[in-house]
Nucleic acid binder design. Structure first.
Lengths: 220, 220
DNA sequence: ACCTGAACACCGTTCAAGT
DNA sequence: ACCTGAACACCGTTCAAGT
């Protein structure tokens, strides 16, 4: 029953999952662990340090059972889908990771896995790095924008998207003519499906020579 | 000297800009306004309501003086650059907007401006909506990931990127062979430049018929 | 009509004291 | 060596009381 890093991380994951991210505090964690809240400071520097450890545990599960005999685009897509799902499942942790790369073991392995796939493309290394940054930004952004809605049940979620779409469709077509034409197509399909479409466009865009940008002097 | 919504929003913008986002509280705002912190509740429902109003004011400045005789890609890029800059300048507000579209006047005008440009592309309306969502996700994600670094001065910022790059380059090449090849190109250029590259790739990806995804039965 | 100020129910974190 | 518990310096928000 002794307090260990492991037991604290376990309890944190459980609390974050069971109640929302907003309902997590060190005081609640103390109650859940049956010990004084401040005992946690014996094992972690502060709350951020604890959440970073939670993040590393979750990043560690992303590469488990990843398909390997697929196109690089398909594998990159799968990794990003899983990374996005992790961020949706742990919004507190996600907010922390947004403030800087954790630079921990599992994050390095995730990066290596992405570069392994981007290395199979025809992109030269500088463009692989650019694509890597763009993939992370899109994935993290998609998760951040979807966090609030993702915690709802399917019925609520559909209702929310319907409400938002309706708000755009309710606009005066004289003042908002373009929104009037496109409004009905906003927030369609699931956010997961929209994400895969965006990801495909991004990968497609990077896997061609890009006009107007990039290093025009490159070898091929 | 009477308290008005306008005066409160002004003071909030000033406080957020002068000190960081983390240093903002209703109590501090009260001191700055020379009135009791709880007087704000007479004009705004709660803190989120106030930040939403701040967000709307800032969104309202994005379209001012936008070039109009340019390609749709160039104008979309300019809008996204400005939206990203707004999020970087007001991280508290940005965090709130991530939780759902504000559905306020200025946000509708921003959406209309983006659809006006996407309408000049050859994309059919459903794809315009998809592109819109993807653009927002990339823009918001890029801003979120860059917020921490953006508040630093140029020197600190470069040092931070150098540190991060070094962490990846320090990895054992036997265990992380692909990172070894690409590591030196990570976090190069400014985050703004990396964002423009990502945006171009995304727009380029959307402006072609996408393989494997999308409605294959479309007219053209 | 508008603002004040006490109060409520919380936070993360520190540190001397206990076992 | 490890944990406790009081204390510090904060939060957002409510509401009866003041002017």
């Amino acid at each position: 029953m002794a307090l260990t890093r492991e037991r604290i991380v376990d309890a944190t994951v459980e609390l974050l999952q069971r109640h929302g991210a907003g309902a997590f505090s060190l005081r609640r964690l103390g109650v859940h662990l049956g010990s004084d809240p401040t005992a946690i400071y014996r094992h972690f520097k502060d709350k951020d340090d604890l959440l970073r450890a939670v993040g590393d545990r979750i990043h560690g599960q992303i590469l488990v059972g990843l398909p390997s005999n697929d196109s690089w685009q398909a594998i990159v897509t799968e990794i990003c889908i899983r990374l996005r799902a992790s961020h949706l499942a742990q919004p507190e942790m996600a907010a922390l990771i947004r403030s800087g790369p954790p630079l921990h073991r599992n994050e390095f392995e995730l990066t290596e896995a992405l570069f392994a796939q981007l290395g199979r493309s025809e992109l030269p290394p500088p463009d692989q790095a650019m694509a890597y940054h763009a993939l992370i930004e899109l994935t993290v952004g998609s998760a951040a924008l979807d966090t609030e809605v993702a915690t709802m049940d399917a019925k609520q979620r559909t209702a929310t998207y319907d409400d938002w779409r309706a708000a755009y469709q309710r606009l005066d077509p004289a003042e908002f003519p373009h929104t009037a034409l496109v409004g009905e197509h906003m927030y369609r399909n699931s956010a997961d499906e929209r994400f895969v479409v965006a990801l495909s466009a991004l990968l497609y865009g990077f896997s061609r020579t890009m006009p107007d940008i990039g290093d025009k002097t490159r070898a091929h």
